[in-house]
């Protein structure tokens, strides 16, 4: 089993995280203690780890959420430093985070939200905005495959959505915005098997040569549906173990405690 990230083996590196150290902005609490991770275009990487290992923090730091302080290290998207960018610049650059807890925004219609986001990104990239008509067609098409009905599109963003609906709405955004690098933060949490399958199908449909995925999950079950190329184990703010899909099965079988004991 390879115990180090397989750097350099792949020509097309999408996300490259080096020695990332992060603490909470307001407290002296260190969360990430030197994360190294490389995700290649066309590949699906999974990060697994016990609660509190820093998985979600990694996703928030990459997408630029307030409240964290990067004390060392870097994170590049296609060779561009992410950590200097505002959240919207990261999104325009092609980074997408599917939230563990998608945010409810009362008063903002889902359609308005999606169209504003899409056009803002297109504008930032110097592309033309999508017309209302084209946009409607595009949304309908993408929504249908995720079984998102018209009613969900009319309601305010995520307000009154079930857990499954919220997660499907995240995948719909992913499908519309066509990011280069997708991070899925505990996308399986709160989903039953059917809902999880629907979400996984949506993700699988988006897998392509030019796109990288980082799937963060506590359980192996999501990885039955979204098959990863590489699996990392995170503990105490570091990637401690890297391997193939079999590593996820090992976690499932033996639990984190045993595996981590083997590392230390």
């Amino acid at each position: 089993m390879s115990r180090s990230a397989s750097k350099g083996l792949w020509a097309n590196i999408m996300l490259n995280i080096k020695n990332l150290h992060v603490k909470l902005e307001d407290e002296d609490k260190v969360i990430l203690r030197g994360v190294d991770l490389t995700v290649e275009a066309g590949k699906v990487h999974a990060i697994m780890g016990p609660n509190g290992s820093g998985k979600s923090t990694l996703s928030y730091v990459l997408s630029g959420r307030d409240g964290y302080e990067v004390t060392d290290g870097s994170a590049e998207l296609e060779g561009e430093e992410l950590l200097d960018m505002d959240p919207e610049e990261r999104a325009a650059a092609g980074l997408f985070l599917a939230f563990q807890y998608p945010v409810e925004i009362p008063g903002v219609g889902n359609m308005t939200f999606l169209r504003t986001a899409l056009n803002a990104q297109r504008k930032a990239r110097g592309e033309e905005e999508v017309s209302a008509g084209d946009f409607l067609k595009l949304v309908r098409e993408k929504a249908a495959s995720l079984k998102i009905d018209a009613d969900m599109m009319k309601r305010p963003v995520n307000v009154g959505f079930s857990g499954g609906e919220k997660k499907r709405n995240e995948i719909l955004q992913m499908a519309l915005l066509e990011p280069k690098m997708c991070i899925l933060d505990e996308t399986d949490s709160g989903l039953d098997v059917d809902a999880m399958k629907l979400v996984a199908d949506g993700v699988n449909a988006l897998r392509s040569e030019g796109r990288g995925f980082l799937v963060i999950t506590h359980y192996q079950r999501l990885l039955d549906h979204i098959k990863p190329d590489v699996v990392h184990i995170m503990a105490n703010g570091r990637i401690v173990l890297t391997g193939g899909p079999e590593l996820a099965l090992e976690v499932e079988k033996n639990g984190y405690t045993d595996i981590l004991a083997g590392v230390e």
């Binding site: 919207e88 999104a91 325009a92 997408f96 925004i105 504003t116 930032a124 915005l177």
Partner: peptide
């Protein structure tokens, strides 16, 4: 909510006025 909008690429000003 502001962060959610920005993470979807909506610029800060626009996100604020939307909210």
């Amino acid at each position: 909510a502001l962060f959610y909008l920005r993470s979807r690429g909506v610029p800060l000003r626009r996100a604020q006025s939307l909210l």
